[in-house]
Write a protein that binds this DNA or RNA. Structure first.
Length: 858
RNA sequence: GCGGGCGUGAUGGAAUGGUAGACAUACCAGACUUAAAAUCUGUUGGGCCUUGUGCCCGUGUGGGUUCGAGUCCCACCGCCCGCACCA
């Protein structure tokens, strides 16, 4: 054996796995299946360390499950539609399709050296016509089952990407991708009826025990269920009542005015003959939706002159105001304001000189409301001043329920449940996406395409000429021939829908497609029945809402349309959200560039000396910002390929798993990577040393080594099963150190290093294969059954018990493991430290926890 | 504002209510070497002196439960994340 050469052994074993078809997944009803999936990447063209960490974690699980007798499905693909390809076409010319496929090729080439246990035969990209054609079929089936519909709606318009965005894709009033301020536009769009499933999507979260509580909570908040009272305010002029929704019906006696949204039908009607109002409404609608804009935006109001009657007292008239803070798309777009117990309403009433009526006060500290509204905590008891229904002692939830019941019995209102979740608008005015398979016909209206006409393929060019992506807008809209087609219903002239689907549609069912990636239908039920659900899904927390909520909706929709079994309504049995790979940023502390911007140095341009960090060339002082997200503009990106070149994939894999718990960020450090490499070298040398031992040589401590081996098996197994990869690796370090120092005989050491290779194989599979083969292991270590810790082996004959005096460690005794409690007590009382402390007295109490600890209370 | 999470050495981090700081980094010292690198060995929470198998303190702060608390409970401080004119 020579020096550890990662490059040599890694390609050697990758070829061996390929040749043996080790990772090809085939349906096999005789074995338990295990489906492990990492969120598939967007083909940006470059693999980054985050990918490496994500896929390595999945690989550890996949390889571990393989050795525990599971039939493992571990596929990989690409989420390949989307704006960056079109932006590249705009910026550097060329075609989004060419750009995308060339990136995919590059990334596959970059992924292969990692030695992942992927079934590459199942690979697909969502921009493959075979994939999006099936997506179109799925869309038609969903249309058939009323899960998709078209409506005119006020939508979020991204003026930079020139497309519509779903609510979920607007972050702080800006487009999630472009960062542009989103505008409001009224357009006819396609929508998925996700809001119909609000209750199921919410209540089913309770069963997702193996999802992070945080993600479940985020989804719960996003779906936003609230129970309240809906009722009408009679208009004094006798016109249609104004319906309002409130979650605080118990404050109805504190009503000050009725407020309606600027987009409310009444506002729109009044606007027609009132130029002053029209101007006010324009002002309201213009208002930015950024966080700052919202926080600083003044409360604007306009008195409509309409009066309504209080439902509990027809003589009590309230004015109707239009207020800029009332949203049309929540509740009914109309509210009653209770300024005494809502800060926003109070601000408004103070500004427009409207009355403030208290319904209750604090029990502990009763005082009239002045500039701060009194909003008690849910459980806080209050003193009622002004109320209806039987509220004497009631507070919070109880008060709400009592008043809802009261209104229902009296017949003027109903308790209703509302959800914040809106339907998912899927139309995008972009080229590089899945065409929506419908035709607009003058005679027949909107007609679904016939399934036999699928796939509706994206045109590559414009009648033989390249598409010009530099012209703003959607090239499909101006395409000379693609747009025109025959109506699938009457055969007359029609026009294709030129909108394409949101790329989140593509990623909402790819996990199902992986179970039968070449099927002639979206899925194949037999394969779906066998492989679904995903047993372990791994990805970033950034998808906690969008992707995961959409996928849960799609799984349900695919069950309704007969493409997935009902058990897959929740498609991901377990979810793990991994942290990022970060890296320090080296910022020049002495100067900026000519534009006043900070200068960031590459890691190799700085050095540490004299307790500080300095630029190598100029000696300038450097500010080190630890653990920051890797970013090209900050010059702190570590290229996985460079690491693989200098250390090998096993080192990169080992490093990204060590040190930090998987759910937390891990900081990439040169010293850490170096240390990982050194350790793998050490293991390699150890293997060499053990192989060179005289096979007949007897040693000392064979039993101890065997016991340590079984402890390592137990701890590493537990670590892998509980996503404690960092802990598992720490145990492997410990076990390696023990083995290196062991004086045991050749046979015992050989057995120990073979087990070490097995335990390391999920993390560093290439090195493990090489050691396994070198020590004469049978076949591939990848296929070898996982070692099992023998409980009997773990028990030592003697145990060392710490002796505590009043809870503080004061000494220890070593006793046979099954010594009787009374015997232990005698020995403890005879211990020097105990005798010294007791000084002849009797202890108050003597606690012996067998095998663990002894505590003497004096 | 609402909801959630986290505070442990110089650093990343270990600890089913039972010996706090595993494992690793960094630092320091030693061995090998002409020297350096590599490798190996050892030390490293703070303090005290009487240098011991010693004592005291120590997991953000203050209290509580317990024979025993980093871990459980209460309050506070600090940091991080998600949502947010949602009635």
């Amino acid at each position: 054996m020579t020096r550890y050469s990662a490059a040599e052994i890694e390609s050697k074993w990758q070829e061996a796995w390929d040749k043996a078809n080790t990772f090809k997944a085939e349906r096999d009803e005789t074995r338990p299946k295990y489906y492990v999936l990492e969120m598939f990447p967007y083909p940006s063209g470059k693999l980054h360390m985050g990918h490496v960490r994500n896929y390595t974690m999945g690989d550890v699980i996949a390889r571990y499950k393989m050795s525990t007798g599971h039939n493992v499905l571990h596929p990989m693909g690409f989420d390949a539609f989307g704006m960056p390809a079109e932006n590249a076409a705009m910026a550097i010319g060329g075609h989004p399709k060419d750009w995308t496929y060339s990136n995919i090729d590059t990334m596959v080439e970059q992924m292969k050296p990692l030695g992942l246990s992927l079934d590459w035969s199942r690979m697909f990209a969502t921009c493959d016509v075979e994939y999006y054609g099936q997506q179109q079929a799925l869309f038609l089936d969903m249309l058939d089952k009323d899960l998709v519909y078209r409506k005119n709606a006020i939508v979020n318009w991204d003026p930079v990407d020139m497309t519509v965005l779903a609510n979920e894709q607007v972050e702080g009033g800006r487009g999630w991708r472009s960062g542009a301020l989103v505008e409001r536009r009224e357009l006819t769009q396609w929508f998925f009826k996700i809001s119909d499933m609000s209750e199921d999507l919410l209540s089913s979260l309770d069963d997702l025990e193996n999802w992070p509580a945080k993600v479940r909570l985020m989804q719960e908040n996003w779906i936003g269920k609230s129970r309240g009272l809906q009722f009408g305010f009679e208009r004094v002029d006798g016109q249609e009542p104004i319906t309002v929704y409130t979650t605080r019906p118990d404050t109805l006696m504190g009503a000050s005015f009725v407020g309606i949204s600027p987009d409310h039908p009444i506002s729109k009607e009044l606007e027609q003959n009132n130029p002053e109002l029209a101007e006010f409404l324009t002002e309201c609608r213009k208002g930015g939706t950024t966080e700052e804009a919202i926080e600083t935006a003044p409360k604007l109001g306009y008195d409509t002159g309409i009066s309504v009657k209080h439902p509990l007292n027809p003589d009590w008239e309230l004015p109707v105001w239009i207020a800029n803070f009332i949203l049309m798309d929540y509740g009914t777009g109309a509210i009653f304001a209770c300024p005494a117990h809502d800060q926003r309403d109070l601000d408004f009433c103070r500004k427009y000189d409207l009355p403030v009526i208290e319904t209750f006060q604090s029990l502990d500290n009763p005082k009239p409301v002045e500039t701060d509204a009194f909003v008690p905590a849910k459980s806080e008891k209050v003193k009622w001043i002004n109320h209806f229904a039987d509220l004497d002692e009631a507070t919070g939830e109880d008060a709400i329920n009592i008043t809802v019941d009261f209104a229902e019995k009296a017949g003027w209102g109903q308790g209703v449940t509302k959800y914040r979740l809106r339907d998912w608008g899927l139309s995008r005015q972009r080229y590089w996406g899945c065409p929506i398979p419908v035709v607009h016909c003058e005679k027949c209206g909107v007609v679904p395409e016939k399934k036999e006409n699928l796939p509706i393929e994206l045109p590559y060019d414009e009648g033989g000429k390249p598409i010009d992506f530099t012209i703003p807008g959607n090239p499909l809209d101006r395409h000379p021939t693609w747009r025109d087609c025959a109506c699938p219903s009457c055969g007359g002239p029609g026009q294709r829908e030129t909108d394409t689907m949101d790329t989140f549609v593509d990623s909402s069912w790819y996990f199902a497609r992986f179970t039968a990636p070449r099927a002639e239908t979206p899925t194949n039920m037999a394969d779906a029945e066998y492989w679904m659900n995903v047993d372990q899904y791994i990805g970033g927390i950034e998808h906690a809402i969008l992707h995961l909520l959409y996928s849960r909706f799609f799984a349900r929709a695919m069950n309704i349309t007969g493409h997935l079994p009902e058990k897959s309504n929740e498609p991901f049995n377990a979810l793990f959200t991994q942290g990022m790979v970060t890296h320090a940023i080296y910022k020049n502390a002495e100067r900026t560039d000519e534009n006043g911007r900070a200068i960031y140095h590459y890691p190799n341009e700085v050095e540490e000396r004299d307790g500080g960090t300095f630029a190598k060339e100029t000696g300038e002082k450097i500010t080190v910002i630890p653990s920051a997200k890797m970013s090209k503009s900050k010059n702190n990106v570590v290229d996985p390929l460079a690491i693989i070149d200098s250390y090998g994939a096993d080192t990169a894999r080992w490093f990204v798993l060590s040190d930090s718990p998987p759910e937390r960020d891990v900081e990439w450090t040169a010293s850490g990577a170096e240390a990982s490499f050194k350790h793998l070298n050490r293991v390699w040398m150890l293997c060499d040393k053990i192989a060179a031992m005289n096979p007949d040589a007897k040693g000392q401590g064979d039993d101890d080594l065997l016991r340590e081996t079984h402890k390592a098996i137990r701890d590493v197994t537990l670590g892998i099963e509980s996503f404690g990869f960092n802990a598992a690796i720490a145990k492997l370090y410990g076990f390696t150190n023990i083995l290196a120092k062991s004086k045991a005989g050749a046979a015992a050491q050989k057995q120990a290093i073979k087990t070490l290779a097995q335990l390391m194989s999920p993390m560093t599979p290439h090195l493990a294969e090489d050691i396994w083969a070198y020590q004469g292991g049978e076949g591939l270590v990848t296929n070898a059954p996982w070692p099992v810790a023998d409980e009997a082996m773990l028990v030592e004959a003697d145990v060392t018990l710490p002796i505590q005096i009043n809870g503080k460690r004061r000494g220890e005794i070593t006793v046979p493991k099954d010594m009787a409690k009374e015997e232990v007590e005698k020995l403890v009382l005879a211990h020097d430290a105990v005798i010294r402390t007791l000084d002849g007295a009797q202890p108050k109490k003597l606690i012996v926890v067998p095998g663990r600890i002894v505590n003497v209370v004096v």
